[in-house]
Amino acid sequence: MYEFEYHRAKSVDEATSQLSGADDGRFLAGGQTLLAAMKLRLAAPSDIVDLGGIAELRGIRVDGGNLVVGAMTTHNEVAASKDVAKAIPALAHLASDIGDRMVRNMGTIGGSVANNDPAADYPAALLGLGATVVTRDRRIPADDFFTGMYETALQPGELITAISFPIPKRAGYAKFPNPASRYALVGVFVSESGSGVRVAVTGAGPSVFRVPDMEAALKSSFSPESLAKVTVPADDLNTDMHASAAYRAHLVGVMAKRAVTQALGK
């Protein structure tokens, strides 16, 4: 790891100004992705702004019809939260299945969303629930946020403060984990709410995406059987040592049915 200047911010405003004063600065959340990238010298920031001391970025609250999760809330905090279990149990389930316990004790929702790994779990929840990414300066709908592989709509130096999830009628998440890393080979998040049905897929393509055909089928009847005839083309999906595009396309169907079954509480 190359040398860097270290800053520990006490507030969102301080973090933002520390970063804007740096040549090539990066925020540090849990460090579970960034530190590995720095060890490999894939990232070599001049400055690190540690968000660990900013109390206003932590915590979970229900605000009207929304569940609001602070950016520095860890995966284990989401998994163990009574508010999450009550409002969106599928989200608690998703968080409890990320990596391993030690990773979940450090890794945060803000870091995961900002990183937008093509196989990460949270992006599926954000897109599958129609969540909003709240930054210091604006609110970005999930539909506009995940713009490509490891790419997001964040501007340089823009700090995520929270994720706001509309509470659905029901939701489910099923993932087929890579047995070594636990990242999603394919993960599918489904939800039904007043504004319709959403189906979001992670792990299969370069970035998380929705499946309109599945959404239409589930809108007419929210059951695993309605997905029987819907297929997902393999054309733009990932092929790697773990799975071919055709296998991933098949898994999308299987995971979607499991997610619906889970949403129905069966």
């Binding site: 270290y6 520990r8 540090l28 460090g31 579970q32 530190l35 590995a36 060890k39 690190i48 540690d50 660990g52 284990n76 391993d100 316990r101 030690m102 990773v103 004790n105 450090m106 070594a180």
Partner: peptide
């Protein structure tokens, strides 16, 4: 040294973490 094996596990503020994947300054 890549956050896979867990041989470096210690407790930080009461919770297990992989100490090869945490900056010492994160424990300030």
């Amino acid at each position: 040294d890549t956050a896979q094996c867990g041989a470096c596990t210690v407790h930080l503020n009461g919770k297990a973490v992989k100490s090869c994947n945490v900056l010492a300054l994160q424990a300030q």
